[in-house]
Design a binder for these strands. Structure first.
Lengths: 150, 150
DNA sequence: TCGTTCTCGTTGCATGTGCAACTAGTGCAC
DNA sequence: GTGCACTAGTTGCACATGCAACGAGAACGA
């Protein structure tokens, strides 16, 4: 396939593989996080993002970006987690439009329980993906990603 | 923090970046394919997968795998596209449980129209992503992916 | 001060999704 | 043949999502 060295074709194939790998990992995580901790992947992502934040609080829009979600979805996601007592809404003092979401002790505890599951499934999924020829290269590339300061 | 914790951290970070890049690309594609051709990303993916198949037909389960969708979602997706005249269901002669989905001329035509949009947005999204430090490495890795025969 | 414009977060609504239960058909054991 | 387990695809249902419209507050200019 000499002609398919075309840049468009390379990009398309890269995207297909990226999507495939993403789907593989997400589906695995979704199932196990759900059954073991009653958490969806985005819910875990939000709790995890909060725990990595100084003071454990973030604004709605930051959260939306971190979870790759629309603001309306973020509103309802936060409401869900708040109803379960995993985080709380706190009004901004300086900008009264804004709302901080803060991890509660219960939220941190659940996150601590869920992390091992998350890490294990992630490792298993990557191992699984490495057996698929089209995905092997991409998985290695993921490993090689250097750790940057954010 | 031992060595194994580092491995966990590297995987987690890789996964976050993969998810971020995936979200970036998918959101962009979703918007433009929707407004320009009234196609969602999965719908495009299905049409594209069919067009790459010899004889332009696939079984439901193949389609489900190609689109990373559940079988029920695939059923309704195919129904949607069938209602628009973009593909047709054909009963398998040899296995009467099975159903082939086949691209119609109209489906192929729409796909031909949509592909340039898809390719353009994909390129733009990748260029965009390259400007984000955390994603730069991953984007380059995507480019480097060699083309394997499937 | 008032009015305009922008940003932040929430809500009504339509829609796409996964799970579980179901029907139809296949394949195997006996 | 008859029963039994398995696979392929569809449907009821609950639910998470995005878009558009909205209210509330901030920022700015005249």
């Amino acid at each position: 396939m000499g002609i398919s060295n075309d840049a468009v074709e390379i990009r398309t194939q890269g995207w297909r593989r990226l999507a495939a790998l993403h789907g593989l990992i997400e589906t695995g995580l979704e199932k196990e996080l759900q059954t073991a901790h009653k958490l969806s992947v985005v819910e875990f992502t939000v709790l995890d993002a909060l725990s990595r934040q100084d003071g454990w609080h973030m604004r709605m829009q930051q959260l939306a970006r971190a979870a790759a979600l629309s603001s309306s979805a973020t509103t309802r996601l936060v409401t869900r987690l708040e109803d379960r007592g995993l985080l709380t809404r706190i009004l901004c003092a300086d900008d009264r439009r804004g709302i901080y979401t803060e991890l509660t002790p219960a939220g941190l505890q659940l996150l601590t329980l869920a992390r091992p599951t998350h890490d294990r499934v992630l490792e298993e999924s990557l191992t699984e993906a490495e057996k698929i020829p089209e995905l092997k290269t991409l998985v290695s590339a993921l490993h090689l990603t250097q750790i940057n300061p954010i």
